[in-house]
Simulated scan of single mutants.
Amino acid sequence: MDFDFSEDQGALRDAVQKWVEKGYDFERRRAIVAAGGFDRAAYGELADLGLAGLYVSEEDGGLGMGPVEGMVVMEALGRGIVLEPLAQTLITTGLLGGYAPAELKAAWLPRMASGEALVVLAHQERKARYKLDVCATTATQAGSGWALSGTKNLVPAADQADAFVVPAMAAGKLALFLVERTATGVGSSGHLTQDGSRAGELTLKDTPAQLITTDGLTALEHGVDIGIAAACAEAVGVMDKTVSITVEYMNTRKQFGVAIASFQALRHRVADMKMQLELARSMSYYASLKLNAPAPERRAAMARAKVQLGQSMRFVGQQAVQLHGGIGVTDEYIVSHYFKKLTQLEMTYGDTLHHLGEVSNRMQDTAGVFA
């Protein structure tokens, strides 16, 4: 199998990496965190690169690209630990493009592709843990439309987004709806997350909503799988940069008059970090290549990938801190922020233990070396 990127994919990666290196340095990121964890101007710059329309068809004003291009972009953004929720845009444009009626697509996809509108997925609830079929939010028909009531937690950019894709129970079945920020009954609050990005709580009280699909669980699982693949790719970028920072530090930090990079035991640790990075990279490729597979195959692939990524993220992050010593956990030094990002990504869309259970549940009777 040929894993070389095409010329267009390489150009896309280079354009995003150039923006990260020149337009999103550590000081700008620190300023964005201090201002609340989200910068509409930075998100607009991503949209100007065409990234908000990556999964939007050309007819709706997007680039009409696919999972591999999404992986390339998220890996490049991971290297700069970019705070703006582009992964959310990939999820919601994918959901609207694949499941919404034509009029809803026409109303929102061009605006999302241009960066004019930020739409995020609001699916997490306190009692659900990582289970997608557990939902207390309710939807009732109100005339020709729908009204939603409930609370969603840890919604990315909750007090900044222009609209939300919200799962809710309609007549005992999970359905998916679009809720505008300006609709009556919408309340939101915002706070910083562990990695410095912005999230918050979304409350709905008899809030008007537009139906995306009545097959909400199928659509939600697909959307979360897009998010898992994006998180895997982003984590590879974060780990790649973490290893580079660690190696650079070891080449400059001296102990007993020599650089600590000359100590064999420490070199072995870096070799182990590199091995975990490459294992994670291969599983990120696997996840992206399986995004368009049939649902059972796709779901199993995402769980497998997230298990390996979770193990790799924990190992690389912890080793980076250990090899740096005390400076590795200070806010002033950049590697601590990469460590926090890896810690948060490990828990995004299900932690390692959750996905290990998913892998186990999806094993067939013939699974194993003796099959």
Rank of each mutant, 00 (worst) to 15 (best):
209 A>M: 00
185 G>L: 07
44 G>R: 05
54 L>D: 02
263 F>T: 03
159 D>G: 07
271 A>D: 14
202 L>P: 04
291 L>I: 01
319 Q>Y: 13
197 S>D: 12
209 A>S: 09
275 M>A: 14
61 G>E: 00
81 I>D: 04
250 M>K: 03
75 E>M: 08
31 A>W: 14
90 L>G: 01
5 F>I: 04
263 F>M: 11
80 G>H: 05
269 R>P: 01
149 S>I: 01
236 V>F: 07
348 T>D: 08
208 P>W: 08
187 G>T: 05
215 D>W: 08
292 N>P: 03
187 G>V: 02
74 M>Y: 04
116 E>T: 05
32 I>L: 11
238 V>D: 01
282 S>N: 15
364 Q>S: 15
353 L>M: 10
179 V>T: 04
193 T>H: 10
354 H>E: 13
197 S>P: 00
289 L>C: 11
304 R>W: 12
246 T>W: 10
125 E>F: 03
103 E>I: 02
352 T>D: 10
43 Y>E: 08
132 L>F: 00
256 F>S: 12
342 L>E: 03
2 D>G: 12
331 D>L: 14
298 R>C: 06
288 S>A: 15
256 F>C: 10
153 N>P: 01
65 M>Y: 14
153 N>T: 14
251 N>V: 01
15 A>T: 09
336 S>C: 06
192 L>H: 14
229 A>P: 02
244 S>Y: 08
164 F>K: 01
355 H>S: 00
24 Y>M: 01
196 G>N: 03
278 E>G: 04
201 E>P: 10
347 M>D: 13
302 M>G: 02
254 K>L: 12
304 R>D: 13
218 T>F: 08
343 T>L: 11
200 G>M: 10
230 A>R: 05
148 L>T: 00
44 G>E: 09
197 S>K: 02
182 T>F: 13
92 T>K: 00
317 G>Q: 00
47 A>N: 03
50 G>R: 07
363 M>C: 13
47 A>E: 07
131 K>E: 14
15 A>D: 12
230 A>P: 02
177 F>Q: 00
307 V>E: 07
124 Q>Y: 13
341 K>L: 09
166 V>F: 05
335 V>N: 08
332 E>T: 10
55 Y>S: 06
155 V>G: 05
221 E>F: 04
118 L>C: 05
259 A>I: 07
78 G>H: 05
247 V>M: 09
175 A>C: 11
51 L>A: 07
344 Q>C: 06
307 V>D: 10
11 A>I: 04
263 F>L: 12
182 T>H: 13
112 M>L: 07
262 S>G: 04
120 V>F: 05
301 A>P: 08
304 R>P: 10
229 A>H: 05
272 D>M: 14
146 W>V: 00
13 R>W: 06
198 R>P: 00
135 C>V: 13
277 L>R: 09
163 A>C: 05
